[in-house]
Design a protein around this nucleic acid. Structure first.
Length: 399
DNA sequence: TCTGGGGTCCTAGGACCC
DNA sequence: TCTGGGGTCCTAGGACCC
């Protein structure tokens, strides 16, 4: 009989990333409470966190909590550079790296024991290398699942390392508050607490059906699985971006439709450049507006064919703005955003991937029509073969 | 708590197809 | 002709994450 060996997953998370980069680059900021941002705190140093300063907090409130707070303007280029250096170390550690954000990743080190030592040794070395070569503190959690590894790093922060003992997973997990569950935010947490469900152990004790009735199908199943330490999700290398977006807060001024249009033109230009740089095309354009009462709407439109052309996408965005215009009531508009979704490859001549979004199969009739119109009937077969070669999702042709 | 900018995923209803 | 089931796409909104 085969014994499937326990997976060994690291969750590596840079501590107070933006703030730490600033303190690294400017010795005067070290040991002092700092916040990166302006109107809103993007990141706070641990010295600032001690005063209760949190990210997403308004600048004014942060200063009230911590009068000595030093506010630093963000330098995104520096963060991107630091992130690249850290990810280079991740990739030297194992080929199985899944980036989650600019400062966080999962590393699967299962089976590296002979080559690199135990997971604890690998994690220790990783922390040392990040400290030495990039000058930043990184916390690592080690566990058999992604979720548990992430919880472990959260508990170990700052500048820590925590290995969840084999067999001790539930003892570790169950006393934690429900908010530690990945996917349990403000709304879900309130629903659970309302019903006296306070800890992860409480969630685990509820039947899945009951949890689904409480939170909806996906959420209920997801949290039920996590609370019982079931998380088979593999570390996924090379995930592709599913959308590209940009948005801009417009402040409190009253803006005319022309002002909004001007801001939107800039956003469309930016996202289209990013789209072309990534060699992608998009099918769906989403306009996002937020009003001064903080209510928000979205309007979207799917193009007949994928595009990366600024003029086509701007036309669509303007059409959406015209549709949304009557909804901009007296309060006016405080944010405008443009997102491009349903992304495909610019270099894929058959665009087989495109009409299907994330789903394995899709509107074959449309795909076939498109290929036939563009390349002739013979191309349909060729297109399917090409798709297979490239490892893409290949739709079944109708009989 | 009076709120930035970048994302992911889920849900639900209607249109449409087989 | 009527009815039903199954499936996908489009759109709008919402929760959540860093």
């Amino acid at each position: 009989m085969f014994v499937i060996s326990e997976r060994q997953i690291l969750h590596a998370d840079l501590d107070s990333f933006y703030a730490s980069v600033e303190q690294r680059d400017d010795p005067r900021l070290r040991g002092r409470p700092i916040a990166v941002g302006g109107g809103v705190v993007l990141a706070a140093s641990y010295e600032a966190k001690a005063f209760g300063v949190r990210s997403a907090m308004g600048g004014r409130e942060a200063r009230q909590l911590c009068p000595k707070l030093v506010v630093v303007r963000p330098r995104f280029e520096a963060y991107v550079e630091a992130s690249k250096a850290v990810f280079a170390i991740f990739n030297q550690t194992t080929p199985l790296v899944e980036g989650i954000s600019i400062d966080e990743a999962f590393l699967d080190v299962t089976g590296l024991h002979r080559v690199s030592g135990s997971a604890l040794e690998i994690a220790t070395k990783l922390r040392l290398e990040v400290r030495e070569h990039v000058g930043l503190a990184i916390t690592v959690g080690v566990a058999p699942t992604k979720f548990l590894a992430k919880v472990a790093s959260g508990v170990a922060k700052p500048d820590g390392l925590l290995v969840v003992a084999l067999g001790g997973e539930l003892d570790f997990l169950h006393p934690l508050p429900v908010e530690r569950l990945w996917g349990c935010g403000r709304v879900t947490s309130a629903k659970l607490r309302e019903r006296g469900v306070l800890t992860v152990g409480d969630v685990a004790a509820i039947e899945e059906r009951a949890l689904v009735a409480m939170l909806g199908r996906a959420s209920g199943r997801h949290l039920h699985a996590l609370a019982n330490n079931r998380d088979p999700r593999p570390v996924h290398v090379g995930r592709r971006r599913r959308s590209i977006g940009s948005q801009r807060a417009l402040g409190l001024r009253r803006l005319s439709l022309d002002d909004i249009d001007t801001a939107m033109v800039g956003l469309v230009d930016r996202v289209c450049r990013r789209l072309r740089n990534a060699e992608r095309v998009c099918r769906t354009v989403v306009l996002r507006l937020r009003f001064h009462d903080f209510s928000r709407i979205t309007r979207s439109h799917s193009l007949a064919r994928p595009s990366d052309a600024t003029d086509a996408i701007l036309d669509t965005a303007r059409g959406l703005l015209a549709i949304a215009a009557p909804l901009i009531h007296n309060g006016g508009c405080s944010l405008v955003g443009i997102s491009l979704t349903n992304l495909g490859n610019a270099d894929d001549p058959f665009q087989l991937e495109l009409p299907f979004g994330a789903r394995p199969l899709g509107r074959i009739d449309r795909a076939v029509d498109g290929v036939r119109a563009k390349f002739g009937t013979a191309a349909i077969t060729r297109g399917v073969l090409l798709g297979k070669e490239q490892g893409m999702t290949v739709p079944m042709l109708p009989d």
